[in-house]
Structure formats: structure tokens, C-alpha cells
Simulated assay, not measured.
Amino acid sequence: MNFTDYLQLFENILQETNPKAPYNNPDYLNYTKLNWSRQQRWLKTGVINAAVTTAAKNITVPQQWVIITEPWCGDAAHIVPFLSKIAAINPLIQLDIQLRDAPPFLIEQYLTNGGKSIPKLIIRDNDGQDMAVWGPRPAGAQVLYDQLKAENADFERVKIELQQWYNQDKGQSLQAELLEVLTQVASIA
């Protein structure tokens, strides 16, 4: 689905009287409500830096950017809006959003340490060949997550500290990493 369809799906989940699993679980529904707000904030206030803008504009052959995500994913709420904004810079970038927990279960081909961590960005060439894979989160957020996990932090603490990290970072780490990915992809194309 394209980003507009993803936003509509997201909104439909929030408006359902009797949402389907996993959104029938109040925790998942609450995460999704929070993520909607976070995503909307980044769509309004997130700034794509000049270097990433230039790298996206310099793409001269069609690319497909596949994002594997879910509306309940906290990391995705901070990452997918930036990826969408970057993809919109160049009409040669086709954005395709795939849900992690729905057919064709593309995540099975892009596991992180054996897990279905999301979001994932897969950049493919015009023939559908993978040129790069990024995700599930910027390195700094991953370090924080690993540290909290090693400390056996409860989910609430993990959620709050990652949220604070993303708020302070403002998409800059993601963009720095994506700039490296785009530079590598440009050398392949």
C-alpha cells in the first residue's frame, strides 16, 4: 500500500467500534493512539536535512522502498514519517508499505537476530533486487534499547526512554544512517 493508504488504515483502526486483533487489546489500541499522534507530529514538524534531500534528488533510476511496519509499533511512529517525506522528494522512489503481521509476511525474509523487529526499509532496484536493508531503529536508539533490555527494564521504562531519545534526536540519526545507505546504493546503481 502507499503511504496515504497506510494512514487511512491507521485511522480506520482508531475509529473502529470493535477493532480486530491485536487492536481489540486495550494496550495495543492505546499504543496505536499514541503512535498516531507521534506520527502526525513528525509529519508536521520533521525536517529533512539538506544532505538527505540532495541524495534523494540525485536518484536517477527507479527504486522501490518497501517499509515493513505496523501501526502499533512505537519505533515506526518516529521513523516511517521521515522515510515517507524522503521518498516524496523524488518521483523515482515508489513507496510500498507492507504490514509485518499480514500476508505475504515479508518480514520472514528480513529478521533481525531471529526476530521480527520493525520497521524495516528495503530499497530495491527496478528489477526487484534488494540494494539495501535498514532497520529496525537508528544505532543510538538500538544501544539504548539493548542497555535497557540488559537491565531487565520493564516495558513502561523502555517505552518512555526510547520516546525521549526520539524526541531529542528529531530524526537526525535516522537521516545520517539513511544518507550512508543512499550513498552505498548510488554506488551500486
Score class of each variant (00 low, 15 high):
residue 52 V to E: 06
residue 144 L to E: 07
residue 73 C to Y: 02
residue 163 Q to F: 08
residue 28 Y to N: 12
residue 167 N to S: 13
residue 38 R to F: 01
residue 139 A to R: 13
residue 65 W to V: 12
residue 92 L to D: 10
residue 52 V to D: 07
residue 19 P to M: 01
residue 135 G to F: 06
residue 98 Q to H: 11
residue 95 L to G: 11
residue 80 V to W: 05
residue 39 Q to Y: 08
residue 151 E to R: 13
residue 153 A to I: 05
residue 15 Q to E: 10
residue 70 E to I: 05
residue 126 N to W: 08
residue 162 L to F: 07
residue 153 A to P: 10
residue 143 V to N: 12
residue 60 T to A: 15
residue 89 I to Y: 02
residue 60 T to K: 14
residue 133 V to Q: 11
residue 171 G to E: 07
residue 157 R to T: 15
residue 127 D to C: 09
residue 53 T to Y: 04
residue 113 N to Q: 10
residue 64 Q to P: 00
residue 44 K to H: 15
residue 173 S to R: 07
residue 94 Q to N: 14
residue 173 S to E: 10
residue 66 V to A: 15
residue 11 E to I: 00
residue 177 E to W: 00
residue 35 N to R: 01
residue 118 I to S: 07
residue 47 V to T: 10
residue 24 N to V: 02
residue 107 I to P: 07
residue 3 F to D: 03
residue 172 Q to M: 08
residue 152 N to F: 06
residue 30 N to C: 03
residue 185 V to L: 03
residue 31 Y to K: 07
residue 94 Q to T: 11
residue 72 W to I: 14
residue 137 R to W: 05
residue 170 K to L: 15
residue 158 V to Y: 01
residue 114 G to F: 11
residue 70 E to P: 10
residue 36 W to E: 05
residue 26 P to V: 06
residue 64 Q to G: 01
residue 27 D to A: 11
residue 27 D to L: 11
residue 55 A to I: 06
residue 44 K to R: 14
residue 5 D to F: 00
residue 6 Y to T: 02
residue 82 F to A: 06
residue 25 N to V: 14
residue 148 L to N: 05
residue 177 E to I: 00
residue 151 E to H: 09
residue 74 G to C: 09
residue 172 Q to N: 12
residue 125 D to N: 15
residue 73 C to F: 07
residue 150 A to S: 15
residue 186 A to L: 03
residue 180 E to P: 00
residue 46 G to M: 05
residue 179 L to K: 06
residue 146 D to T: 15
residue 126 N to D: 13
residue 101 D to L: 08
residue 94 Q to E: 13
residue 141 A to M: 09
residue 33 K to N: 07
residue 90 N to C: 08
residue 110 Y to L: 02
residue 138 P to T: 06
residue 106 L to E: 13
residue 167 N to V: 05
residue 158 V to W: 01
residue 157 R to W: 04
residue 70 E to C: 04
residue 84 S to E: 14
residue 111 L to T: 14
residue 133 V to N: 12
residue 4 T to D: 10
residue 12 N to Y: 00
residue 96 D to M: 09
residue 168 Q to F: 02
